[in-house]
C-alpha cells in the first residue's frame, strides 16, 4: 500500500518495481505471438523509468503486465517485493485514450470515486483531496464539469490528477500524451514532471517519442521490436533532462542512432513519424 512512499531510502527495502526475465505472449489468429521476451528491469523509489521503443516492441504490453491486466508467460513482476496478481489501485494507470474517465461523473466525481474505492476515504475527505488535486492540475474551474465538455488535454489532466490523488506505489503512464497536439503535449510533459518532482512519485512512463523519454525519464530503457527485448539503457543526468541543452540533444541523437543505426534524422517530428510506422 502507498503509505511507504515518503520513507527513507533504506537499502534493504525491495525496489518498488522489479521485473525479472518477463516474457509476454498472446494468442492471435495466426498463432502464439511473443510480444516481449526476457525483459528485466527495476525501478527505484522516486525514479521515473521511460520505456522507449517503436510500435510493436511490446512496451504497452509490458505496462499492462505490470498493471496486472496481462499475465506473463514466464518471469516475475514484483511490487514492493510481492508478486503482481491482478489490477489494483496501488498501480494507477494513465491511459493514452481519452475515454478512461467515467462519463457519468464530473471531474471532481471521477477523482472522488477513485479515492473512495482505492483509499477507502469518506465522501467528505475524498472531496477535499479531489479538489486539491484538481487545483494542482489547473482544472479548479472545471471541477463540476462532465468529461465530455473537456478537451483531450484536460481529460488527460483529470486522469493524471486521479492517478496521483490515489498515491499509488507506482504510477503507470501508457503514452498519456500521444493523442495530444504538439503544444499541449510539451506543456503536459512539463506539468507532469513538476508533479512527479514535487511528490517524488515512482513512475513507469511508456512512450515512442525519444525527446519525451529523455525529458520525462530519469532513466531511459530502449526496447527493440519483434519481440521486445532490452536494447539499451541510458541514465538521464540533470543537464540532459532539460530541453534545448547540448546534453539533451546529444543523448537524443545517441538514442536515435542506437535505434536506427547510423541513419541520420533531423527533427523530432520526423523521428516520431518513423517510430510510429516502424
Amino acid at each position: 500500500m502507498p503509505q511507504g512512499q515518503q520513507d527513507a531510502r533504506a537499502p534493504e527495502v525491495p525496489a518498488p518495481l522489479s521485473v525479472s526475465r518477463v516474457t509476454l505472449r498472446y494468442q492471435t489468429e495466426k498463432g502464439l505471438v511473443t510480444a516481449v521476451e526476457d525483459v528485466s528491469f527495476t525501478i527505484g523509489r522516486g525514479e521515473r523509468l521511460a520505456l522507449l521503443g517503436p510500435s510493436g516492441c511490446g512496451k504497452s504490453s509490458l505496462l499492462r503486465a505490470v498493471g496486472g491486466f496481462l499475465k506473463p508467460a514466464s518471469g516475475a513482476i514484483l511490487l514492493n517485493g510481492a508478486p503482481v496478481k491482478g489490477p489494483g489501485p496501488d498501480r494507477m494507470v494513465v491511459f493514452q485514450e481519452f475515454d478512461q474517465l467515467l462519463p457519468w461523473r464530473t471531474v471532481s466525481g471521477n477523482v472522488e470515486f477513485a479515492l473512495r474505492r482505492a483509499r477507502g476515504l469518506s465522501a467528505a475527505a475524498a472531496r477535499s483531496v479531489a479538489r486539491d488535486w484538481i487545483g494542482r492540475v489547473g482544472l479548479a474551474r472545471f471541477a463540476d464539469a462532465f468529461p465530455h465538455t473537456l478537451s483531450g488535454g484536460m481529460k488527460q489532466r483529470v486522469a493524471i490528477a486521479r492517478a496521483f490523488a490515489v498515491q499509488p506505489a507506482i504510477l503507470l503512464m501508457d503514452e498519456p500524451f500521444a493523442a495530444l497536439d504538439a503544444l499541449s503535449r510539451r506543456r503536459m510533459q512539463d506539468e507532469l514532471l513538476a508533479l512527479c518532482e514535487e511528490t517524488g512519485a515512482t513512475t513507469l512512463f511508456v512512450t515512442h517519442a525519444i525527446d519525451e523519454a529523455v525529458h520525462v525519464g530519469t532513466r531511459v530503457l530502449v526496447l527493440s521490436a519483434h519481440p521486445g527485448r532490452v536494447a539499451a539503457e541510458y541514465p538521464v543526468s540533470g543537464e540532459a533532462a532539460r530541453r534545448g541543452t547540448a546534453a539533451f540533444a546529444a543523448l537524443e541523437a545517441e538514442i536515435q542512432s542506437r535505434i536506427f543505426g547510423s541513419e541520420p534524422l533531423s527533427s523530432d517530428a520526423e523521428a516520431d513519424h518513423v517510430l510510429e510506422h516502424a
Binding site: R64, G67, F69, G86, P87, G88, P89, R91, M92, V93, F95, E97, D99, Q100, L101, L102, F113, A114, R117, A118, V166
Partner: peptide
C-alpha cells in the same frame, strides 16, 4: 463499453 474504461475500472479496484 470501451476497453480503456473497463481497464480503468478494474485499475480502481472494481
Amino acid at each position: 463499453v470501451p476497453q480503456t474504461l473497463r481497464m480503468a475500472g478494474r485499475n480502481m479496484g472494481l
